[in-house]
């Protein structure tokens, strides 16, 4: 019974981490616990959220997607670049479509050409970043239409703004996926593709769909962010890379596939962003964001390793052989 409780706590440790960070920062960082600051935490989280959700889906399917950073930047470029000609709806539609195309390309490489997803998305990352750099002509693109950005960042309900709400809705939809049949099938595909295949599930289709969704979600995040600041920076997606990957891993999604939770990824994103926000409230420079993310990721991974070893050590033991007296026992326990 106690072991069951320990397992449950370990699985939901991300909530404990979030609470811990919030409490500590509220205590030691000036101006941390204000509504204005919480609003900006949520805004900063919303930037990374869609890409993090997409990466969670891909990892559940048992693969890795490194191209989401450049996918975000590209979508931002497209949205800003095409806005004068197509208006916001059109520009965003094109941005999302290009994200889907990137995802489909990744999916085809992984399922048809059977290329390792690390390598495949490394290749597409290079290509798309090149496209981003060309489109930006080395600088930042900007638009004159600030209305959309103002609206997206405007107040809605206290600390929420429309962009945050949109991103949270997207995350909620993805989380609900876990309760549907396609969602559970995706988990099975990631956990054991052979089982899924013999059960008649189209594994290639599910993997490609996961990559396509990841592409669309990253594009959505990038486009929304670009709209909100009314400009597109070619390096935007790159700064997300570390936070997003760290959040997905810290949130408990396994790189081997078959295990993961969108909700926990969201919590992890908010936790990491709160950490860096708190640090900057304390006067630390932006560089600390990198240091903090890396540190938390490393600690989380080490903790997981300890957990795995503890479980493995206990596995297979017979209870009756544990209780008896045995020589040398005095030293342990």
């Amino acid at each position: 019974m106690r072991r069951r409780a320990a397992v449950v706590i370990a699985r939901h440790r991300i909530w404990a981490l979030l609470v811990g960070i919030l409490v500590v920062m509220a205590a030691i960082a000036p101006n941390f616990a204000t509504t204005g600051n919480f609003a900006s935490i949520l805004r900063a989280s919303a930037t990374h959220l869609p890409a993090a959700v997409g990466l969670t889906l891909v990892m559940i399917a048992g693969h890795l997607d490194l191209s989401f950073g450049s996918g975000m930047s590209w979508a931002g470029m497209v949205a800003i670049g095409l806005q004068p000609r197509l208006g916001w709806p059109g520009a965003v539609a094109v941005a999302l479509t290009s994200g889907a195309l990137l995802g489909l390309a990744n999916g085809a490489l992984v399922t048809r050409a059977r290329v390792n997803s690390f390598i495949a998305t490394l290749g597409t990352l290079t290509v798309v970043q090149g496209m981003v750099n060309i489109a930006s002509k080395g600088g930042t693109l900007a638009v004159q239409d600030y209305a959309a950005g103002d609206w997206l960042e405007g107040a809605l309900l206290g600390i929420l703004c429309p962009r945050v709400v949109l991103c949270l809705l997207v995350a909620a939809a993805a989380a609900l996926l876990g309760r549907t049949r396609p969602g559970r099938n995706l988990l099975l595909v990631g956990a054991n593709p052979t089982t899924a295949w013999y059960a008649g599930i189209g594994t290639a289709g599910y993997v490609t769909a996961a990559f396509a969704l990841s592409g669309v979600l990253a594009a959505a995040g990038g486009a929304l962010f670009a709209m909100s600041v009314s400009s597109a920076n070619p390096l935007m997606g790159e700064s997300s890379l570390m936070v997003v990957i760290a959040a997905v891993i810290i949130g408990g999604t396994s790189m081997q596939g078959g295990r993961g939770s969108v909700v926990q990824t969201v919590v992890a994103v908010v936790a990491l962003v709160s950490l860096t926000n708190g640090l900057s409230c304390m006067g630390a420079r932006p560089e600390t964001q990198l240091l903090a993310s890396g540190f938390v990721l490393g600690a989380s991974v080490l903790y997981d390793a300890r957990l795995v070893r503890a479980v493995a050590a206990r596995k297979g033991r017979r209870p009756e052989l544990m209780l008896d007296d045995w020589p040398g026992k005095e030293g342990t326990r």
Binding site: E287, L290, S293, L297, G298
Partner: peptide
């Protein structure tokens, strides 16, 4: 990735 970020930071 973590050590890279740590050292870089």
């Amino acid at each position: 990735l973590a050590t890279g970020a740590g050292v870089g930071g």
